Amino acid sequence: MTVKQLRAFLAVAHSLSFAQACERLHLSQPALSLAIKTLEDNLGGPLLVRTTRSVALTPEGETLLPVARRLLADWDNAEELMRQHFTLQLGKVAIAAMPSFAANLLPVALKAFRDRYPRINVAVHDVINEQVLEMLRNRRVELGIAFEPETLDGLDFMPFYNDRFVAVLPVDSRLVAHEEIRWGQLLSEPFITLQRPSAVRLLLEDKVAELHGRLPVALESHQLVTVGRMVAQGLGVSAVPSLCERQMIELGARCVALSEPIIERRVGLLCLAGHQLSSAAQALADTVLALSRGG
């Protein structure tokens, strides 16, 4: 059965008139008759009884009628649904983002996206850097935002910017007055950081060790918010990507530039290499990239 054949049958069955069905479908009578005959041949018997004066359904035609209605309704609904998805009137997209981005710049991008596409549902997974990559590779999300991986291994990376780490200090710290401090000065205080396997923690340990040895961790947490609150309460100091600077200030801490060494790493958008994004995911990717690059 084809959609065209079912539409022809349904038009005749509703009006019980070939002439009216031709007018409704904008078909010639020979074309309508051929569609009905081909359908009957495919199914194995007559669906309509046609005389010079009337048209009636056979018992098999009566059986097919409600089925044809459902099939065509489903087809029309599917066409409309896909049209709405491709025109971004409906849709759903899942994105995974490391906490430093998810809590700071991502909401700004989502606001711009929702203003333009209010009926697109966005599922945000706020997870550590390593889980962003894992969720992408397992196809649990279409988009990811994270530090640039050491090896892409089947992923495409579109950079936003280089994010430089800054010191996070209590408001009454003697170091707050400085425009820039050295790592050696920062590490003279109790150090608070994220727990392993956080990419932030591993990056700090790797870069700081070259000049200052092992990172002297006094307190650690899984959440940046908790780290910020600990610092604000005077329990110690920390270092976070500059992306988190506003968040740290809102939590009651202060931020100062760090040097010796300067630690920075590229942040960007990730997706599976060679994977065709859905229309909704592509629109969200374009929005995030434009805003993150100052567009």
Rank of each mutant, 00 (worst) to 15 (best):
E134F: 06
E134Y: 09
E134T: 13
R137L: 09
R137W: 07
R140V: 09
V141R: 09
E142M: 13
E142A: 09
L143S: 03
A146C: 12
F147V: 10
F147L: 15
E148W: 09
P149T: 06
E150F: 12
T151G: 02
L152N: 01
L152M: 02
G154F: 06
L155P: 11
L155Q: 07
F157H: 13
F157R: 09
M158H: 07
M158Y: 08
M158N: 05
P159R: 09
F160Y: 13
Y161F: 14
D163L: 07
R164E: 07
V166C: 06
A167H: 06
V168R: 09
V168C: 08
V168T: 11
V168W: 03
L169S: 07
L169K: 14
L169Q: 14
V171S: 14
D172A: 14
D172H: 13
D172Q: 13
S173R: 06
R174V: 12
L175N: 05
V176F: 05
A177T: 14
A177R: 15
A177H: 11
H178E: 14
I181W: 04
R182A: 15
R182Q: 14
R182K: 09
R182S: 15
W183V: 00
G184M: 05
G184A: 12
G184Q: 08
L186Y: 00
L187C: 01
E189F: 02
P190E: 05
P190F: 01
I192F: 00
I192T: 04
I192L: 04
T193Y: 00
L194R: 06
L194T: 03
L194C: 05
Q195S: 10
R196I: 05
S198Y: 02
S198E: 00
S198G: 01
V200N: 06
L202F: 07
L204W: 03
E205Q: 00
V208I: 15
E210H: 11
E210A: 05
E210W: 08
E210Y: 01
E210M: 08
E210Q: 04
R214E: 04
L215K: 02
L215Q: 08
L215S: 07
P216E: 08
P216W: 04
L219K: 13
S221T: 13
S221D: 12
S221E: 13
Q223W: 05
V227F: 04
V227M: 02
V227N: 01
G228F: 12
R229W: 07
R229T: 09
R229Q: 15
V231I: 12
A232N: 01
Q233G: 13
G234Y: 03
L235V: 02
G236P: 03
G236H: 01
V237D: 04
V237R: 02
S238H: 01
V240E: 10
P241E: 04
P241L: 03
S242T: 10
S242D: 15
L243I: 10
R246W: 10
M248N: 01
I249D: 12
G252R: 05
G252Q: 02
G252C: 12
A253D: 01
A253L: 04
R254C: 04
C255K: 13
C255S: 14
C255M: 06
E260L: 06
E260H: 12
E260V: 04
P261V: 12
I262D: 04
R266K: 14
R266L: 08
V267I: 01
